[in-house]
Amino acid sequence: MPSVSMRHSVRAIILDEDDRILLCRFAIPEPAGTVVWAAPGGGIEPGETLLGALRREVREEVGLMIEADPPHVWHQEVVAPGHAAGYDGVINDYFLVRTVVFEPRGELSDDELAAENISELRWWSLPDVSGCHGRDLFSPRDLAGLLGALITSGAPTRPVPLGL
């Protein structure tokens, strides 16, 4: 059986005091014009722990310093060649980070963010997410339902397994 190469990433579900979520706008070149709003985060580097990678990625992308160990709330595995360039799929581990609202500005320059296909950072309310019916996508696709459950019920005792 051929080996499957998965990109392992961490993502932060950053919620402010009004339960708004901070999302990154990823403008993906292929397929042409695809826009995906997703939680900040990224790939785990060799030798990094999940939380070490989470702290680094969030600091770099949005400028938030994560002090405590946030709860691990969702686990996603998507095996789909082409879903992540050079990989057969992705594994995303999501952590819940509560904070007061802040102006997102990380350590990365605009050019460095653009190299990662990030073109905007925006706070979204749950009604904004659930009411968005344009061509833009959310990741995970059922972000509104998952976010609603997280806001209503709090962090689960074990990470919830997700699909696409």
Score class of each variant (00 low, 15 high):
Met1Tyr: 08
Met1Val: 12
Val4His: 08
Val4Met: 14
Ser5Ala: 10
Ser5Val: 09
Arg7Phe: 09
Arg11Met: 15
Arg11Leu: 10
Arg11Thr: 05
Ala12Glu: 05
Leu15Cys: 02
Asp16Ile: 01
Asp16Phe: 01
Arg20Asp: 10
Ile21Trp: 02
Ile21Gln: 06
Leu22Met: 10
Leu22His: 04
Cys24Gln: 15
Glu30Val: 02
Glu30Asp: 04
Pro31Gly: 07
Gly33Pro: 07
Thr34Met: 10
Val36Trp: 05
Val36Leu: 11
Pro40Thr: 06
Pro40Trp: 12
Pro40Lys: 13
Gly42Glu: 09
Ile44Gly: 06
Ile44Asp: 02
Ile44Glu: 08
Ile44Asn: 03
Gly47Asp: 09
Thr49Tyr: 07
Thr49Val: 08
Thr49Ile: 08
Leu50Arg: 13
Gly52Gln: 14
Ala53Asp: 08
Ala53Lys: 08
Arg55Val: 01
Arg55His: 09
Arg56Gly: 11
Arg56Thr: 15
Arg59Tyr: 11
Glu60Asp: 13
Gly63Val: 11
Met65Ser: 12
Met65Gln: 11
Glu67Leu: 12
Glu67Arg: 13
Glu67Gln: 10
Asp69Lys: 14
Asp69Tyr: 14
Pro70Thr: 15
Pro70Tyr: 14
Pro70Lys: 14
Pro70Gly: 11
Pro71Glu: 05
Pro71Val: 00
His72Pro: 07
His72Arg: 14
Val73Lys: 15
Trp74Glu: 01
Gln76Asp: 02
Glu77Lys: 10
Glu77Trp: 05
Ala80Gly: 02
Gly82Pro: 08
His83Cys: 00
Ala84Glu: 04
Ala85Cys: 03
Ala85Leu: 06
Ala85Phe: 06
Gly86Asn: 12
Gly89Ile: 13
Asn92Pro: 00
Asn92Thr: 03
Asp93Ile: 03
Asp93Leu: 04
Phe95Leu: 09
Val97Met: 14
Val97Thr: 07
Val97Asn: 11
Arg98His: 12
Arg98Ile: 12
Val101Asp: 09
Phe102His: 13
Glu103Gly: 11
Glu103Val: 14
Asp111Phe: 08
Ala114Gly: 02
Glu116Tyr: 05
Asn117Glu: 05
Ile118Thr: 14
Ser119Ile: 13
Trp124Val: 03
Ser125Lys: 04
Leu126Glu: 07
Leu126Arg: 06
Val129Tyr: 05
Val129Arg: 11
Val129Phe: 07
Val129Lys: 06
Cys132Gly: 03
His133Lys: 07
Gly134Ala: 03
Arg135His: 10
Arg135Lys: 14
Pro140Phe: 01
Arg141Trp: 05
Asp142Met: 08
Asp142Trp: 03
Leu143Asp: 04
Ala144Asn: 00
Ala144Ser: 04
Ala144Gly: 01
Leu146Ile: 04
Leu146Asp: 00
Leu147Gln: 01
Leu147His: 01
Thr152Ile: 04
Ser153Asn: 12
Ser153His: 10
Ser153Ala: 10
Ser153Val: 02
Gly154Thr: 00
Ala155Glu: 05
Ala155Ser: 11
Pro156Phe: 13
Pro156Gln: 06
Thr157Arg: 01
Thr157Leu: 10
Arg158Val: 04
Pro159Asn: 04
Leu162His: 05
Gly163Lys: 10
